[in-house]
Structure formats: C-alpha cells, structure tokens
Design a binder for these strands. Structure first.
Lengths: 193, 193
DNA sequence: TTTCGACTAAAATCGTTTTTGAGTACAAAT
DNA sequence: ATTTGTACTCAAAAACGATTTTAGTCGAAA
C-alpha cells in the first residue's frame, strides 16, 4: 500500500514536470523535490530517469487505448462511424498527451530510443484495430469490396502519423482540426460502394 | 546582354550552393568564387544576400507555376483528373525544390521573413487555381453540389501544407508518395455525387 | 558594368573553465 | 522491505572569452 503511494506520487510529479518542461529540462532533483520524496526513493522505484519517463509515456498510451476502446466496443456504431470517430478522437487525445509530444520532438531532433519499443508495440495495436474495422466495414457492405486493406492501412498511417508534426509540434491542431474532420467525411464517403 | 549573363551566372552559382548547403552555410564569398565574379558584382546586382536568395526561391516558384499550368491548361483533362494530377505533381515538384525546403526548415527553426511575401503571393495563386478547378468540377456535374468550396480549400491546404514537413524535412516523400496517391483517389471519389 | 583589395561591425566558431545533473553509497530510520 | 538525507563522483552541458568568419561598404581603376 505505502509502496504504491510513493510510486504514484513520484510518477505524478514526473508527469507534470515532464509535460511542462520536457525530458531534458526536468531534473531528477526537481522531481524529488516536487513529489516530496528523497532522490534515493526515485532510484529505489525506477532504474533511471529514462525508466521513469517510460512509465509516464506508458500511462499516456494506456489512456489512449482506453479512449479508443470506448469507441471500438460501442455496438451502436457502424464501422464507418467508428473509423470517423477514431480518427477524430485520436488527434484530440494525442493533442492532450504532452509527454508523447516530447518524444515526437525528440524524434525530430535527436530520438529517444528508450521509448521505441513502447511506440512500436502501440503502433502495432493501432494498426490491428484499424485493420479489423476496415474488414468489418467491407464485410457489412459499408465499404466497397475492391479495397486493398493493407494499402489502405499504409495510407491511414501516412495521414495520422504524417500530420502529427504539423498538428502538435507546430501547434496547428486548433487551426487544422475542423479541416481534418471535413477530410475524414469525404474520405469515408470515398470508401463507400 | 553582358549584364544579364553576369546576373545569370551569379544566380546559377547561388542556386547550386544554396541548395547544397542552405542559406546560412553558403557565403557570399563562396558564391563569388564559384560564379567567377567579384563580390562587388554580386552587390551591384543584388541588394543583399537575402535578396539573392529571394531570386533563387522565386525561380523555383516560377518553375512550380509552369508545371502546374501544363496541367491546368490541358483541355483533355476533366476537373477531377486535373485535381488529382495537381496534387501528385505538386508533391513531386516541391520535393525537387531544394531551396524551398530550406525555407521550410527555416520556418521550423527560425523563420525567413524576407521570403514571406513570395510565399503569401504564391499561396494565393495556388488557392485561386484550385478554387477554380473545384467550381469547374461542381458546374460540370463531376462533384456533388453540396460542397462548401472554401471549407474544401482549407482542407486542401491543411493536407498539402501539413504534409510538407514530414514529406520533405523528414525525407519521407519516397515512403509516402504511393499512399498519398491512394488517398487522393479515395478523396476524389468522395467528392463525386 | 565589373574588378580588386582593403575595411568594419556583427555573427559564428572554438577552446577553456565552471556548473549542473544523473546516478551511487551508505548510515539511519520506519 | 521502504524511505530519508547527505555527501560524493564523473560526464555532460552551460557560460565565457578570445579568435575567426562573413555580410556588406568604399573607392579607384578598367
């Protein structure tokens, strides 16, 4: 019990500080101070600063999955509605995930390889749920049958991954999201028979 | 005659050097040396280094317009075919415009404000020709009539401008262009009645 | 119109010193 | 088994200052 409380306090403080100042500009001493824990305790729970950061990003990814799952598991929605919602929600959730942004920025300038496996696993998950949705849509007759599912997936990734930098690093989310929604509408329409 | 030859030689050398090393890492002394002209001559023809760079970028934009005009003026193509070709050709041409890339990079890190007016004017031109094409498509019955043309334009800009950084700064043009083409196909289909 | 060399003021580069910060060690307390 | 506090190491980064590079100018000559 007590052990988890300490861990949580550390992760809490880390999450706030990392999201405000980024990985490099947050020091372990600062995290210790804000969480009111001794530096030794941080290293008792986490092997390194990188390990702590991984935990923080991992939490954001879990949140991402949860939000997506709400949509995927909603039986009132058709496949096409789900895809639309997923795309729009995805951008909103990522926009709120400040620490994931930091890894995006890092990708651009330096690259945090200690986060790679998290990301790769997450990308796989995202790809597989989208693939399922497309297949679902084709089988239910919502989409045309002459779609190359894997090609479509590549396109999806180009779009959402490609726009991440302009959306989040250049802070154009607010400027772009209504256009993005419009694009999805036309896109979904283009998938129909 | 002679005067234009000198100017051309300077612009030629500048174009090559700027595209290879970028604006900052190319010196006026180097341009003078490569063009075999005296430094004084550069300043006789161009007010400043920035002015010379403007000229080089301006040339690339003229080339851009020319290539687009080939498509726009082709009477054998329908509006939808033109839009598809424009989008695809646009990305290819920008991919080849090394000095425009440099301004993209600068936009990201610092911002070359001495190029702003060129870009604003060019954006206006691109917007207006695309607007014409959409209207053409609606009038000829290729596209649905319930399209908000200006909203559609915003979307177009989000897409092509937004993807510029991933495409050209992150060098993903090769990786992405077939997916981009696929996206255009679905998109065009989504515009149809 | 073009060249050349010499000049200035500002910016970029470079090597050195100083400071910061990740990570450790350990004794003492829960 | 957890947590704290202090004190430490050592590598990397910031700060600093001296040095060099470079945009831009000037003027005389071709």
């Amino acid at each position: 019990m007590a052990i988890d409380q300490t861990r949580d306090k550390i992760v809490d403080a880390a999450e706030r500080l990392f999201s405000k100042f980024g990985f490099h500009k947050t020091s372990m001493d600062e995290i210790a101070k804000v969480s009111r824990k001794a530096k030794g305790s941080l290293y008792y729970h986490f092997a390194s600063k990188e390990d702590l950061f991984r935990q923080v990003v991992s939490n954001e990814l879990v949140n991402f999955k949860n939000q997506m799952s709400l949509i995927i598991d909603d039986n009132n929605l058709k496949a096409s509605e789900k895809i639309k919602l997923i795309l729009i929600t995805r951008m909103r959730v990522v926009n709120e995930a400040a620490n994931y942004h930091d890894t995006l920025k890092a990708d651009f300038f330096e690259h945090y390889d200690f986060i790679d496996d998290l990301r790769i696993e997450h990308d796989k998950w995202e790809k597989s749920i989208l693939k399922d949705l497309i297949i679902q849509g084709v089988e239910s007759g919502e989409f045309t049958t002459n779609l190359d599912v894997d090609e479509l997936l590549e396109m999806y990734l180009m779009l959402v991954k490609g726009l991440e930098i302009p959306f989040f690093l250049q802070n154009k989310y607010k400027k772009y999201y209504s256009s993005f929604e419009k694009l999805i509408d036309i896109f979904i329409k283009g998938l129909k028979p």
